[in-house]
């Protein structure tokens, strides 16, 4: 596709400055890549935040089993913490390659895009889990005591007292993490997915002109600026 565009619209040029028409065409082509970048972003956000929350509850779970030898095992907690350790202890790039190239060896074959989604969701869920866990830890124990003496049960306490206060504490770090996510999406280029980064690189190659790098930089910055705005509104809304 890039070859085609190259021939029709972009006479090869050594110039660093490109014409307005070329700029518009550059934007058009890069915005094709934006589709993958943005859909990956939203899929990861919408799946990894709930999964991170589940991991948080698992990781705080007091569910214990006593073995016959008298040792205590906490299956949910250990599972969650082990998973988080694994995800944070290895590069996302490696996880991405493992899901796409490694899983087929155990019979799990995923297309490029679903593979990227799986790797990103698992990785980001681990980071969100740690953020949420920190938020919950920061809640004053007096809050639980007040809830208990008022007769609120555990579930109601979690929903009405713990989560709202946790979210308040977590918002800045969640914002940070989503900003990282936008930038990390560029890694899917390694799987050959035509995301914003991929389109930029091929355009630079075919144009023999580095301007698309600058355009891509601006696009990433605009996305991140928008995100930060949304989060600062959220932050204001949850201030008490």
């Amino acid at each position: 596709m890039v070859q085609y565009i190259d021939n029709i619209f972009y006479p090869k040029t050594e110039a660093v400055i490109i014409s307005p028409t070329q700029l518009i065409n550059t934007l058009k082509i890069l915005s094709q890549g934006l589709g993958i970048t943005i859909s990956l972003f939203f899929i990861v956000i919408f799946l990894s935040i709930p999964l991170g929350l589940v991991l948080t509850f698992m990781s705080n779970s007091k569910l214990g089993i006593r073995t016959r030898r008298g040792a205590e095992i906490y299956p949910l907690r250990w599972l969650a913490r082990g998973f988080v350790f694994l995800m944070r202890g290895t590069p996302l790039m490696l996880q991405l390659l493992f899901v796409y190239f490694g899983l087929p060896y155990i019979g799990i074959v995923l297309e490029r895009f679903p593979a990227a989604c799986v790797a990103f969701v698992l990785n980001y869920a681990a980071y969100f889990c740690e953020i949420f866990r920190g938020g919950i830890k920061s809640i004053d124990p007096g809050q639980y005591e007040a809830a208990q003496v008022l007769g609120l049960r555990k579930f109601a306490t979690t929903i009405k007292i713990v989560l709202p206060q946790m979210i308040r504490v977590a918002i800045p770090s969640v914002c940070n993490e989503t900003v990282n996510l936008i930038k990390d999406t560029a890694l899917v280029t390694t799987l050959g997915l035509a995301d914003l980064m991929h389109m930029t690189k091929s355009l630079v190659n075919s144009l023999a002109n580095v301007t698309p790098f600058a355009v891509a930089a601006v696009i990433y910055m605009v996305l991140i600026f928008g995100l930060s705005k949304i989060f600062s509104i959220l932050e204001k809304k949850t201030t008490y």
Partner: peptide, 14 residues
């Protein structure tokens, strides 16, 4: 039917 009042109030801040 028991209630308690704490030294640090423990109101729900949100």
């Amino acid at each position: 039917h028991s209630g308690m009042v704490f030294q640090h109030f423990n109101l729900f801040p949100h």
